[in-house]
């Protein structure tokens, strides 16, 4: 516990000042956010006898580890922003998106949003044992559409996902990862979201689909609040975003215009 407190101090010191733009309408406010999560099953002896002794001694699971993933992040996102989030693997990008979506509880600090954020992740499979068709219907109903609205949107979603003939009748487990992510994106994008968080969900799509989704993200931005995009392909960030957050080790390194931040990031990572 002692070293956790230590880290808290360090990040408090490092937390960047946030200037508030009074002329624009804020949609996401992240205030000195700290996220820690507990990971189970990280090694350790796994037999019944040692587990039993552990229970008798009232010890915690030795295999539990606390990861301090976000260490004091603050920023304000405004209506109409498309924000790219970049950083090396394990820098806390996905954790940040999950926190904005309200799926990870903050250890301290807070995330404030206007409306309901929706997270679209690469692993966010819907129901793999059901057909694409049923996934569309169920996904739309779960997002709160009425059956009539689903009927209206159905063709649009199928067309946008651009699946090969007949695949819509197959269970989603038969889809390639690219096809699956296209369908998921198409379902999520069929509704306007207050805040849309996209976590590498477009990475597996082909060039044609990336162009289509870039257009769709532009539309969603106009209709709704803000879009957050995590991607490793810097050109798609340049294409779609007007602002970029560069994150490293859970802290904010840079926050600003796309080109400036991406250039600095490219230089720092030595590409």
């Amino acid at each position: 516990m002692a070293d956790v407190k230590e880290k808290l101090k360090v990040s408090e010191y490092a937390a960047p000042r946030v200037t508030i733009d009074q002329t624009r309408e804020p949609i996401v406010v992240v205030d000195d956010l700290h996220i820690k999560y507990r990971v189970y099953g990280a090694g350790g002896k796994g037999n019944a006898a040692s587990a039993f002794i552990r229970v008798l001694r009232r010890e915690h699971r030795p295999t539990m580890k606390v990861v301090h993933a976000i260490r004091g992040l603050s920023f304000v996102a405004y209506k109409g922003d498309a924000i790219g989030v970049i950083g090396t693997n394990g820098s806390g990008k996905s954790t940040l998106l999950k926190a904005i979506a309200g799926l990870l509880p903050p250890e301290s600090g807070g995330v404030y949003t206007s409306g309901q954020p929706s997270l679209l992740g690469v692993n966010a499979a819907l129901m793999n044992d059901l057909t694409g068709e049923r996934n569309i219907v169920l996904g739309c109903l779960a997002m709160g559409m009425s059956p009539d609205q689903v009927k209206q949107k159905y063709d649009e979603i199928v067309k946008f996902a651009g699946l090969k003939e007949g695949f819509i009748q197959l269970p989603m487990r038969a889809y390639s990862s690219g096809m699956g992510s296209r369908l998921r994106f198409a379902i999520a994008a069929s509704k306007s979201h207050d805040v849309l968080l996209i976590d590498e969900a477009l990475a597996t799509g082909d060039a044609k689909f990336r162009r289509k989704s870039a257009k769709k993200i532009d539309e969603l931005r106009e209709e709704a609040g803000a879009v957050f995009l995590v991607a490793h392909q810097l050109d798609s960030i340049r294409e779609m975003c007007n602002r970029v957050l560069w994150i490293d080790e859970g802290t904010l390194v840079m926050d600003g215009e796309t080109d400036a931040v991406v250039d600095a990031y490219t230089e720092a990572t030595g590409k």
Partner: peptide, 22 residues
């Protein structure tokens, strides 16, 4: 808390809600 309180206050003043609240 070097000015962080004001960011939370700003958010609530603008009608934003904590995203992890039920």
């Amino acid at each position: 808390m070097n000015g962080h309180g004001s960011l939370a206050d700003f958010a609530t003043a603008q009608g934003l809600k904590q995203s992890a609240a039920r």
